[in-house]
Design a protein around this nucleic acid. Sequence first.
DNA 1: AAAGAAAATGCAATCGATTGCATAATTGCT
DNA 2: AGCAATTATGCAATCGATTGCATTTTCTTT
Lengths: 355, 355
Amino acid sequence: MNSSISSDSNKMDKKTSVTIHDIARELKISASTVSRALNDNPRISQATKDKIKALALKLGYQPNTIASNLRTQKTHTIGIVVPLINRHFFSAFISGVEDVAFEAGYNVIISQSKDLLEKEKKIVHSLFSNRVDGLITSLSMQTNEFDHFQLFTNKNIPLVFFDRVAPDLKANKIVIDDFSCGFKATQHLIDQGYKRIAHLAGPTVLNTYHDRMEGYKEALRKNNLAVEDQLIICNRLTRMDGQQAIQQLLALKNPPDAVFCGNDTSALSMIVYLKSQGIRIPEDFGIVGFSNEPFSEVVTPSISTLKQPAQEMGAKAAQMLIHEIENKTTQDYQTITLPSELVVRESSLRNNDTK
Amino acid sequence: MNSSISSDSNKMDKKTSVTIHDIARELKISASTVSRALNDNPRISQATKDKIKALALKLGYQPNTIASNLRTQKTHTIGIVVPLINRHFFSAFISGVEDVAFEAGYNVIISQSKDLLEKEKKIVHSLFSNRVDGLITSLSMQTNEFDHFQLFTNKNIPLVFFDRVAPDLKANKIVIDDFSCGFKATQHLIDQGYKRIAHLAGPTVLNTYHDRMEGYKEALRKNNLAVEDQLIICNRLTRMDGQQAIQQLLALKNPPDAVFCGNDTSALSMIVYLKSQGIRIPEDFGIVGFSNEPFSEVVTPSISTLKQPAQEMGAKAAQMLIHEIENKTTQDYQTITLPSELVVRESSLRNNDTK
DNA sequence: AAAGAAAATGCAATCGATTGCATAATTGCT
DNA sequence: AGCAATTATGCAATCGATTGCATTTTCTTT
């Protein structure tokens, strides 16, 4: 009926979208043929394909992915759950995932657990109900049970953990070698001539912080230095936490002359405090942080830290996940350890002859 | 047949998931009843509801959102397209969106355009095909046509632009007052006694950079200062760009003594360069940046800048979008301008009597 | 020209949940 | 007890695309 209101064809198609059936009807062929043609199925002749595609274009046909998803039981969507989107390490990681996912034709749904176990559980259920093809996760600080992930493991839906992983969980993992990082950081401080080295750790229920601390201890031992409980503080590594920790350390009878911090944020706040007390860095006191936050390079003094290849980790996680999605083999679980690097900057560089 | 292998009930349900039909069959009732019961439809008696919910729990039933989406034509999903996830302003914005979306029961699909128009187009199509209920976007630097968004506008699918918005597009927008920000920054420098103030702008095809520049000009005029072309440089505001710009400015016959930069990154690189040249900040030279990056507070000197309420913008955008999704009224398009704040720090604070 | 092979297209069920419109079961009331 | 009024449940179509298995059309070949 309405053949050409041309000038404003918008108004008419508001109601319903164009479907393959509309195309089929108009061309007096079956919907199957249309579907196959649009998917370049070789069973359809080139002539009909052309005809169909031309009409599809003309009608502004847009496939309904939902319908396709339902039928094919695939959504080409991967879910990501991180503690906090708004943090450099995680947003860089997500960016890495998105890059790879986009190239492979996958969408990315993200959620943040806010480090709350309950929220993490809800999210995982929701993502499952949304039938994501795979899931990439870094655990919340509170996560001490893993039943919610069984939704995925039970159905053999690929799952990749990164950074904060469950040590005993059978799953794929992307990590860095936190132990070796902790070791390198501490050894570096020792090499720079610092004598009493403290450590500010995050919650050691998390593998990352636990391993960093173990690396720290091992380095001390290797160098015949005592591991002293009073030199090890454990908290959530906020700015406030960093300041409290350094105050506590300086108040010791025999205070340290260097600290290896579990992250850059706490390292920064220590630096700020030390400067305010007139303590010179690195001359009087050495600091090494962790994660290489963007600010670490530009503060004064710049912060020595461990560089986690966040973007690469994300890319790798996505590759791994997508590979598993598309080659559903009951393969063994892998743990991929990506290289991380000690970046020596002003806050700990006392000798000019670097190693 | 397989009644109780209990210990390891995982293995069996790998194949197919539990559906409402399974529950219906087992209870010898109809699937409709099951569906209604699970949705707490008042038409179902409490007794049957209890029975159904109990069984659903026992069988580990998980609703198939895809099927529901198809039937109801709603996905409870909103799409976000940003130039780059891995940047503080955008990741904070996304975080704000996710907070509100989660509370309202919506999922968030994110993609990054990488500032490429072609990628932006593909993403927008893909999100449309995925039938997101609404879209939140900040334009790519290249975006100079908007046809791809008509997919959404034609079908009355809610759309919110933020930050980088198309001035002439009929749509909802969340912005800050870039003009006034540019004005405030410049006026502040004038108040601090700087005499020749330059401006480093981003691509002025983008409203944000355009408006900041206009604010800058207006402030000069208001103070009877000349607007000089040679004092205005336009580039992409990378670190490299910042350094080149400051070199270029210092090489002028009559160089400026302050710069208002379009972002903090370029401001930072100017500071680094100026320091390397022995030029004192703020004594000899004043700098104001834009966006309040995390590093701006902690570098030396700390950078005066304009604080964009990224997280709040995200929250607001999500509220606006969801409201529109759920109250599909053909209301007028709104532009919400959120307050932004000049944060005065060391890089421009020459007089102690602020203001 | 006829028969067999190959190519192109169509039928109808399916994915899992939802919902308008019956129909069935129960309750209430005289 | 009988019938209307409630209340509870079921039927069957629907959302839009996909796909195994026909069936039809076209092309070869003798």
